[in-house]
Design a protein around this nucleic acid. Structure first.
Lengths: 189, 189
DNA sequence: AGGGCCATGTAACCTGTTACATGATTGA
DNA sequence: TCAATCATGTAACAGGTTACATGGCCCT
């Protein structure tokens, strides 16, 4: 259901193809909700069956024809209704494979643990750099479908800030864990 | 698959019933991997079909009989194999309903946004307090099935630290967002 | 008397992932 | 010439959620 509303939400800004929706997902919503391309196509079909969107095919000479989806008034109403009801539970489901491994890390060698934390830190630092590099690009993409009204950009700003802050914290966390692992080793010698 | 390995992992410490597994999940693994009770029963059945666990029924007079699951040597081997292969992707899938609403928050009133951030902060602060209060209890529960060897407790310590640190950061984040919302309002008057 | 804990599961449904299938254009 | 991008989808499977079904004990 939620993915359908995410799609509807984007379609309130502009009519888009499944492919374009997927691009926008990767650059914005992906920070807190992931969706694969095939999933998007499936949900678009479901939305059309409900009458929340309509589609029409645009022929193109040089590229494959595309199916452009447009939100209907029923879709708009359903979206607003969904939007106004924030979820009760503010924490939600989790699935973090890395943490799952870590929890059982005692059954692994300490050197393997350290290796994994180092990899974690390196990836998070690269991620941070990528966020900084992409920030302007993301804003440009967002502006192609969001109007430049200040209040509409709030959501994106908040989302980006959260991504940056939590990423920094996770790097710090991993560094502290690494320190612990090194100190324990020192104590043993 | 991952849930199956989480269950196997817990069963390496002790033989447990589906119900008991669910309790332990709620107090430990739930920080980074959620599972419902019915899911646990289903995965236990799947694990038994694969020969990774065996079960035997213990009759009880005062309470319902219980089915106790024990890991087999094949199960142990499969678990160790899984454990030694950390995931490539360290970020993983996300589904955060609150963020999804927030992203489209521009279509909502500013007062509604503020209300939601206030709720967010209150819940996160309560969560922090609950973590502090439960810390000792959790450790006791963990010790009932984990041996007290220091290195085995590492995983839990790291997991708890991460939960505390990210929670703190999220509170700070929400406070900053609230400040932004208030300042913008001030500028308008 | 009523709610929560103990304890087990089944069934249906909804979501998410992966593999398959096709094929032209553009840039390195 | 090779990979990437544009562009659409289907099918099968895996994993997660919700509702249903049952029933005694313990505490307030």
């Amino acid at each position: 259901m939620n993915l359908q509303f995410a799609i509807l939400g984007l379609l309130t800004y502009a009519s888009l193809t499944g492919y374009a929706l997927s691009k926008i997902f990767d650059k914005s919503i992906n920070n807190f909700w992931s969706a694969s391309l095939s999933q998007i196509y499936r949900e678009l079909a479901a939305l059309e069956a409900k009458g929340y969107v309509v589609s029409n095919i645009q022929e193109q000479d040089d590229r494959p024809d595309k199916r452009v989806y447009t939100i209907t008034s029923a879709g708009l109403a359903a979206f607003q209704e969904w939007l106004s009801h924030f979820p009760e539970d503010l924490i939600g489901p989790k699935r973090d494979e890395f943490m799952l491994h870590l929890f059982f890390g005692g059954k692994l060698g300490r050197s393997e643990m350290k290796k994994q934390f180092e990899r974690f830190i390196a990836e998070r630092e690269a991620f941070e750099q990528a966020m900084i590099d992409n920030k302007k690009k993301v804003m440009e993409i967002v502006k192609t479908f969001k109007t430049p009204a200040e209040e509409e950009d709030m959501g994106m700003r908040f989302v980006q800030r959260r991504a940056m802050m939590t990423n920094r914290t996770l790097i710090q966390w991993a560094q502290e864990c690494l320190k612990d692992l090194n100190e324990e080793e020192g104590a043993e010698l």
